[in-house]
């Protein structure tokens, strides 16, 4: 939320590892946008381990490795 005030990325479930763009500061629409409320159950995001290795790990507390 703090980093992407002008962007729908701010509440997107994919924000921590999205590969579509490096500039998430001003995105007004996205077909990949997925909000937590769209799902029946709490979000469990699966990401490949390579992506986790390359990220800072800050947002990965709830992620499940595949």
């Amino acid at each position: 939320m703090k980093n992407y005030k002008r962007s729908v990325c701010s509440t997107c479930s994919y924000v921590s590892f999205c590969s579509l763009t490096t500039d998430k500061s001003n995105i007004s629409s996205c077909s990949e946008y997925l909000h937590r409320l769209d799902e029946e159950y709490p979000q469990i995001t699966k990401v490949p381990i390579e992506i986790l290795r390359s990220s800072d790990g800050e947002n990965n507390k709830n992620l499940v490795l595949i």
């Binding site: 997107c12 994919y14 590892f17 999205c18 590969s19 579509l20 990949e32 997925l34 990401v47 490949p48 992506i51």
Partner: peptide, 8 residues
């Protein structure tokens, strides 16, 4: 080819 938030 397909690209989405998770990769390509």
């Amino acid at each position: 080819a397909v690209q989405d938030a998770s990769g390509t």
